[in-house]
Nucleic acid binder design. Sequence first.
DNA 1: GTTGACATTGACCGCGCGATCAATGACGTT
DNA 2: AACGTCATTGATCGCGCGGTCAATGTCAAC
Lengths: 205, 205
Amino acid sequence: MPGRKAPEEQRRHDILRAAFAVAARSGLAGVTARSVATEARISSGLVFFYFKTIDALLIALLDWLLERTIVAGEVRGLAVTIADPAERMLAIVRRDIERLPRQRARVELFFDYWVLGTRNPAVRQTIRGALDRYRDSLLVIAQQVVESAPQRFAGVTPLGLAGVVAGFIEGCALQAVMDPSRFDVEQYMATLGALVAHPVPTHVS
Amino acid sequence: MPGRKAPEEQRRHDILRAAFAVAARSGLAGVTARSVATEARISSGLVFFYFKTIDALLIALLDWLLERTIVAGEVRGLAVTIADPAERMLAIVRRDIERLPRQRARVELFFDYWVLGTRNPAVRQTIRGALDRYRDSLLVIAQQVVESAPQRFAGVTPLGLAGVVAGFIEGCALQAVMDPSRFDVEQYMATLGALVAHPVPTHVS
DNA sequence: GTTGACATTGACCGCGCGATCAATGACGTT
DNA sequence: AACGTCATTGATCGCGCGGTCAATGTCAAC
C-alpha cells in the first residue's frame, strides 16, 4: 500500500532505530536492507530511498550510536563535589565503568564498528574522533592531577595521563562486554584505589 | 590437474597460512573459500575437503592465531632478574605493550574474532579461555605484589589485581591497533610508573 | 601393467545480498 | 474533479557466497 505517511525526518529516525535493533540482536553483519526493512515494517526499497547505500546507513548508525554512548563524558557535579583531583579522577572512572553493564549492547556494537574501522577509513576516522573526544574530556582533571603532585608526576603530560586512563576504561569495557557476570566494579575500584594510593601524608605536614 | 601432492597435514597448514594472509589483508569477513583457495593456489573444493565447513576453518584459524599471539605469556628471565615484585610486574607490562606494534596484524585479527565471539558461543569460549590464561599468567606476580605490601593491598585479591593489569594491557592493545603512530610506550610506562609509585618509605623504617 | 585408494578440480546449485525501477497509491494544490 | 508530487512497494537483476559432487589425475601396492 504505497502512499504518503511520514514525510518528515521521522522515517530516517525509524530506520535508524530499526537498524540498531537489528545490530543489537545480530551484529553489524546482520544489518541488511531486508532485515532493517522488516524490523521497521517497511519495504526494502524505502531503506535505499532514505539512505542511498547500506554503507551510508551504517555510517549514520555509527553517528547515532556515538551521540548517545560513551562520549557522554560530561563531568558535571563530580567536578565540584570532590576536592582532591586524584579522588575526582577515580570517581569519574567509577562512574564510567559502572554504567558499562547497562550500555552493554551499545558498547558491543561500538567494538563491532571498531573492527570495521580497521578496514574502512571513514569509520576509523569517526571512531578516532570519538575516542579523542573521550580522552579530552578527561584532560582537565588529568591536568589537575598532575599539578596536584608535581614531583610525583614529573615527566608525565596531562594528555598522556588522560590517554592511560581512557585506555584503562576501554580495557574494562572489553572485559565487561565479554563476560559481564565476572565483571566486578567494586573489585576493580578497590584494586585501582590501592594501586594509585597517594603516599600517606600523615607524617609529612 | 588433480592428483596426489601433499598428502600430509602440510595442506592444512598451507590453507591456514593462506587464511591468515587473507584475514590480515581483508579481515575475517574477507575469508571465503574462494579467497583462501586462490591465496593457497588450490581449488576451492580442497578447502572443504580439509575443513568441512568455513566455520570449522575459522575456528582452526583462531586456534592457530592464539597459539602464536598474546598468550605467549612466559615470565622467564624477568621473574628472576628483578627483585621488587611491583617493578617486576611493570617490566612485564612493558614487555607486553612493547611488542603490540609488532603484532599488530594478529592483534587486529584477534579483535575481529572477539567481535565474532559476541555472537558465536564456540568462539567466545575459546577467547575467554585465552584471556583467562593470559590473566592467570600474571597471577603469580600479582600474588607477590599483594604480599609485598599487605596493608596497601588490603581487600585486593591477586586475581583481581591480575584482572586489572590484563584489562589495562587489553586497552593498550586497542589503542595500539587503532592508532599506532600515536601509541607511545615510553609515555605509557612513565605515566604508569608515576601512578603506582610506592609511598616513598624514607621516613618509615 | 593393472588396480584401487584418494587428493584435486571446477562446474554447479540455491540462497541472500545490495541495488534498481516501473508501478502504485496518498495527499496538497488548483 | 483533475492533476502533479512524491513516498512507497515489491519484483527483479547480477553477484558472490557456502557447499556438493562427478570426473580425473597421481601414486603405492601387487
